[in-house]
Lab assay of single mutants.
Amino acid sequence: AQASVVANQLIPINTRLTLVMMRSEVVTPVGIPAEDIPALVSMQVNRAVPLGTTLMPDMVKGYA
């Protein structure tokens, strides 16, 4: 199954992502693919992302 990017902590709005904030997990619905984690580093989220939330393309500025 495809692993997705999941928030490893609460990520406040406009925060630049770092590796420690993200983990890969097989979840439904599928979000951003886990292999994109390196590309997500330093991108900003456009909303607060609670712990355990799957990151979707529309949550990350410049990803989609």
Rank of each mutant, 00 (worst) to 15 (best):
A1I: 13
A1H: 06
A1C: 05
Q2T: 14
Q2C: 08
A3C: 14
A3F: 12
S4C: 04
V5Q: 01
V5M: 02
V6H: 02
V6I: 14
V6N: 00
A7F: 02
A7W: 02
N8S: 08
N8A: 15
N8P: 02
N8G: 13
Q9E: 12
Q9I: 14
Q9N: 09
L10R: 07
L10S: 11
I11R: 00
I11E: 01
I11H: 01
I11A: 00
I11Q: 01
I13Q: 12
N14D: 15
N14G: 12
L17P: 03
L17F: 02
L17C: 03
T18C: 04
T18Q: 12
L19K: 12
L19M: 13
V20N: 12
V20W: 13
V20G: 13
M21V: 04
M21H: 12
M21D: 06
M22D: 02
M22G: 01
M22R: 00
M22N: 01
M22Q: 00
M22K: 00
M22H: 00
R23Q: 08
R23E: 04
R23C: 05
R23D: 07
S24K: 08
S24N: 11
S24V: 11
E25H: 11
E25Q: 08
E25G: 09
V26A: 08
V27K: 06
V27R: 08
T28A: 13
T28L: 07
P29T: 06
P29V: 09
P29W: 03
G31E: 02
G31L: 02
I32T: 01
I32G: 02
A34Q: 09
A34I: 08
A34F: 07
E35V: 13
E35G: 07
E35L: 10
D36N: 14
I37G: 12
I37Y: 03
A39M: 15
A39N: 14
A39P: 04
V41T: 10
V41Y: 08
S42T: 12
S42E: 11
M43K: 15
M43L: 14
M43V: 05
Q44W: 07
V45D: 01
N46K: 06
N46E: 09
R47C: 04
R47N: 10
A48W: 08
A48H: 14
V49W: 02
V49Q: 02
P50T: 12
P50Y: 08
P50S: 10
L51D: 15
L51E: 15
L51I: 12
G52L: 03
T53E: 09
T53D: 11
T54D: 01
T54E: 02
L55E: 00
L55N: 01
L55M: 10
M56S: 10
M56T: 12
M56P: 02
M56H: 08
P57S: 08
P57K: 06
D58M: 09
D58K: 04
M59Q: 04
M59H: 12
V60G: 00
K61Q: 12
G62D: 13
G62P: 07
Y63D: 04
A64H: 15
